[in-house]
Amino acid sequence: MNELLVCKDLEKNYSFVKALNNVNLNLEKGKIIGLLGPNGSGKTTLIKIIAGLLKADKGEVFIDGEKVSEKTKSFVSYLPERNYLDDTMKVYETVDLFSDFYDDFDKEAAFRMLENLDIDINRKFKNLSKGMKEKVQLVLVMSRKAKLYLLDEPIGGVDPATRDYILNTIVSNYAKESTVIISTHLIADVEKVLDEFIFIKNGEIVLQTSVDNLREQKGVSVDEYFREVFKC
């Protein structure tokens, strides 16, 4: 069985809005997958359900054969689209925290990456710039040897140079057996690192295919095809 993530008939409603509807997914191991859709299409909702922060109203999620639980959390590495670290902690303390809780965390790799980024590990998290904060969180998340990485808008708030650095970090750090899901609406930037992509629209999966397939069949890039499918 090469399936890492299986979503069956997922449905999620927020009071009057259908956030996810009839979502079925089968994702294999060893892929970098783009979860692409406009704002409010359900990307974050889907990722939060997989991470265990939201309960689906209907349907099931299996990660490496397990239902979402504290067990799956031990091999899912999740980067939210906000700062989730206690900002009174110093950077090295957040590294210790990850190392304390995640058995798959490589502390040395984390310190090496932070050093490469010129981040002073004795500074408090709240005193870092926005871009620095995002980098620290990415370093922590990517220093885990997880089976599944869930990256929610990892390049949302940073400049193009930092975007390249972040994408390089993701590509060079994920274990080859692992799968990475990157949610974003900045498609042109991530396209070059993707193996597959999923289009999500109004809470429904409209397409799941490989980047090569798209190029062969339609002769367009993911970015061009996205503009076509999601034309306003």
């Binding site: 922060l53 899912v76 906000r82 989730y84 809780f101």
Partner: peptide, 17 residues
């Protein structure tokens, strides 16, 4: 803050019951 604000995103993705 640790459960219901942004910190909760980490608290509830730790591999703990």
């Amino acid at each position: 803050q640790n459960l219901f604000k942004d910190d909760g995103y980490l608290t509830f993705t730790l591999p703990v019951k």
